[in-house]
Structures are given as structure tokens and as C-alpha cells.
Nucleic acid binder design. Sequence first.
RNA 1: GUCCCUGUAGUUCAAUGGAUAGAACAGAGCUCUUCUAAGGCUUUGAUGUAGGUUCGAUUCCUGCCAGGGACACCA
Length: 576
Amino acid sequence: MILKKSGRISERLSTSSWLSCTTCSNEQVSLHISIHPPFGYHEEVKNTIEILIKEALRGLDIQDTDFVVEHPADLKMGDYSTNVGIKRRTRAQEIFEYLDKNKTDDIERVEIAGPGFINFYLSKKFFLNSLKQIIDAGDNFGQNSNLEDKKFLVEHTQPNPFKEFHIGHMMNNIIGESVAGMIKANGANVKTVTYHGDVGLHVAKAIWGALKQSGDFTGAYAFGHKSYEDDENAKKEIIEINKKIYDKSDSKVNALYESGRQNSLDDFELMYKRLGSEFAGHFYESEAGEIGKKLVLENAGEVFEESEGAIIFKGEKFGLHTRVFLNSEKLPTYEAKEVGLAKIKKNKFVYDESITITANEQDAFFNVVEVAISQIFPELNGKLRHLSHGVLKLPSGKMSSRTGTIITAEDLIEDVKKIISDKGDIAQEEVAIGAIKYMILRQSIGNDIIFDLEKSVSTEGDSGVYLQYAYARTNSILEKADKSADTNIKIEENYEIEKLLYRFPEVVENAMDEFAPSHITTYLTQLAGSFNSLYAREQILSDKPESAYLIAVTKAFNTVMKNGLTILGIPTPERM
RNA sequence: GUCCCUGUAGUUCAAUGGAUAGAACAGAGCUCUUCUAAGGCUUUGAUGUAGGUUCGAUUCCUGCCAGGGACACCA
């Protein structure tokens, strides 16, 4: 049935050069079809509607009319909707009549409503087939091949040894993993990498602090940082230690550096594991600095120039601003290290696109540095993308290691575990991680989060727990079911959840297009709400004939929820 | 000063230029002898401001107001 209809669509398209819809030109539609050999069911019905409208316009001799076919905001207003009747008000009735007369059996009803929208209500046959498709596809439902054969490198998290892995790093990690998940779901190959600031003044401060505490790193950075600010002598000693770290001339400093660095990195690995990250590469500023300095010097005079003893990049030529790459002591700055990092990544990985995820305070920095890198490596032009997110702020302001207002990732996870501990003993770690991840991923990634433990990490209502709980419930139902899912039962009623389930693949596509994991989060929450309502209203396991159909709905929901949460990196405990 | 980002219910967040601006939390009320009540149902309540473009603006453009960030030797 599906194959036959696809053929019909291609046939119509190949002869329909009259098209005037600018949002869906003939070329684009044809291309779309050729990219997706197994034509998705939801795409098929949308294309059918678009073609019907184009036929109607042609038949009525209406030209130059743009229109869109989309899901209306409210499920009550149908499954698809077009604005063509608003664009051509005087002809709306005729267009509607054509559509109503020529609708396929996937469309139950067409209506004209509101200011002239034409709404399409899909048929039971469509929903029945879509359920079947979801259950058959299983873990693969929601995956597509839009980015097939493409290779992505995603850099995120970037915690600095000798400093805490705090909730800001955690936010970056959570967003990074969800972005990687979306890219993967869209068919591409993804590798994630991280980058550590293992040299620099912050390291010298920590080592100075540790030296004063007879080798103990506890609170060493904060101590060193404060002393650096307040005490001239300490400041001199710290600068001295910083040089020793670079030239490795002091065995005591070397020993502290090596052990402190390794301890930090080991701790980070434990946290990555808790958060579900597996990096294909770890890079370090200590290696990037050397390479970056060399590259800057090699390109001095062409890409970079000397000014006041420093080597700088004049961003003004590109509508940006000037930044220093080597300071007047010819030491590499963060900028030069980023150049070195670009070369390291390029040598180690083959990729079509390299994404770096950071907080948005680095936006201007990356604008300049990416242009500079593209000057040095023209082959990277257009392959670098900086994706930025807002910052986590405490109600009292920005987190600061100076004032000791740092919340570590570990503290937060443990605090959330305490909050949920009175509700059950099962899967506490997964529920805590899920609640935190949801807090980050529920909103648009560009916006800041004012972080308040009690209010931000919710365990009821709009929360990660809500999604996990709905999922766990379905596992329990499906386990108890004594008959298998059957979509061939005659059911009159359309359940609301069926109107949402089939949309999952397009949500995954849209989320990828906009790098917006929140689209998936929002969708899953709406879906879970719909399921919970159904669960409260209907007895799924029963002797009634519709029970087998409801089991199919439950199975489809279970599949979509699991696949969605997996893309986002939110754990899916089987029991709660 | 220049550039960038953000202003939506009491609070935290949604809303590919569309229809009656959605949730959640908090407040008021109801709901477990029935598949997991971490659930469900009812209810009060919002687009900073002034213009512009459009058949239609929370969304696009301009001014203003408010908050945050970046802007030469930190990362």
C-alpha cells in the first residue's frame, strides 16, 4: 500500500513542473524523496496533502500562491493544516471542496475553519499503520539517514584539572551529549572529545596552595587564588611556580603537578561515567599550546601581526575585533591554544563538521578564533561550528571559586538523590541524573538558568522523573500483558496519544536542524502527559476486545519514550 | 562607548509569521477495594514599552527601558 502510493507521488511530481509553492519547490520535494528510500509514513501523508493542494491550485488556475502544510498548534484543530485558504480567501471554498473530494483514505475528514485554515484529520487506518510501523521499527524508530556518511566531532565539558567539576561543566556535558545524540539519530557518525586546561595560572595557584598545605590539594586552588589577589609575595611565588611548571625545573613541583593532574583526570573519568559520556579523545592545553605557538609564528606577517610586542590577529578585517594570540613574552594565550587544538583534532580525526560547545560568554572569542583558524587551514573553512549555551547562575549571582559559591556536580547529584530517597529505593542514581538532565534540556540552550536546588531540579510535574515514571509504568504493563499487541482490532475511538506518536521522527529532524534538544524534551513531556491521561481513563489490560489495541498503543509509547530519552542521554530505568 | 544575548502568569519554562499564547510549580477543590497516586481531573492567572512591515506579530525591523555577557597580553 505504501509502495504503491509512493510511486504515485513520484509520478505526479515528475510531471508537475507547474509548481508555484516556494516553500516546497519541485526540486526540493523530489530530492527529499530520493534521500529517503524507505519513505516515512508521516512524510508520505504530508507530501500527499501538499500534492493535493498543488493539484487543486492548478485545477482552479490559481497561480503564485505560497502555502505551508504543518501541524496545527492544537490537536483539536486536526493533524495537518494549511494556510492556502488564507492566502487566497476568495477561492478558499473551491480549494476546500477539491481537497475534500479527492482526499485519500489516510485522511478521514477535511474542514475549513477559523480565518480560513483548511484542516486535515487523519484516519483510523493511518493511525493503525503508524502504530504498526513504530512497533516494527523498535529501537530504530525516530532514526533517519539525513546525515548519512557525515562525520561529526563534538567537543564538550572541558573541565580543568586542579579545579572542581562543577554544575557548569555538567550543564555543558549534558547539552553536548544530547547534541551528539541528535546527530547520531540523524544518521551521522559522531565522536565526542574533551579538552583540559592542564597548564596556566590556575594550576600554579593550586600547586602553590598544595605546597603550603604540605601536599594536600583540598581547597588548594581557592587558597592560592585568594592569596594571589591579596598577597604580593604569594603572587610572586605563584608566577614563579607557573614558570617551573612550563620548564619542569623543580622536581617537587613536577611531582605535585603530575599527581594532582592525574588525580583530577581520574575523578573526571568517574563523573563522565556517571553522566554517560564516553570520549573518543582527550586533549590538553599543554600540548595545544606548543603546537599553537608554532602555527602562530609560522603565519606571522600573513595571518597575524606584531603589535606592542605581542602577536595579534586583526579581526577588524572581518568585521570582528583584535585578539592576542601570543603575549609579549611570546607565550601562547588561550587563542593560540585553540589554533593548536584545531590542528590536533584535524590530524587525529577525519570530519565534515567539528562542533565546540561552550558557554555563550565565549561567543566573541570563537568568532575571531574560528576566522583565524580558517585563514591558517583553508580546508577547515565552513567546517567549524561553535555552539553556545547560557550559564547556570545561583540566585546570589554567578558561581565563583573565589567566594566559595561553587556547587560541584557530585554534590548536586547526591543532594537530588536525598530528595528522591523517600519516594523509593529503586534506580535512585538514574532518577537523580535524569532529573538534572531534564532541568537543563527542557529549555532553549541559549538561555541562562537561575539555579535553585529546591525549585530547579523538579521531581514532579514537568520533570525528568515524570518521563521516567511513565516509561517504567509501561514496562510493568507490558510485562503483565497476557496477549500480544494487535493493531487489527476494529476501534472506533481515536486516542489523543496516537496523534502524537507518529510525529516523533519529525521532532528528531527539527531538533537537529535547530540544534535544539528542548524540542525533543517538550515533545516527550506532552507525549507522557497524553499517555498518563489515557492510563487514568482506560483499563489497558482487560478482557475487552480493545485491550489488544491499547497494548499496541502502550508498546508504541514505550518505544518512543525510550528512544527519545536515549537520544537526550537521559537514563531509562525499567522499574521505579 | 561598540558589539552580542535575554525580557511571556506570583515563580521556572514552552510556542517552525497563524486560529482561544501552552505546561509545570505555588494557591483553591476533587481522585487510590481496579494495570505503579513520582499519577489523573477541575480552577485562578502573562507577551517590558512605542512605532513599522503583514490578511495575520510573542516571533521579523527600528527606537526606548531593564538585565546579562564580550571587547589586547586570563581561561
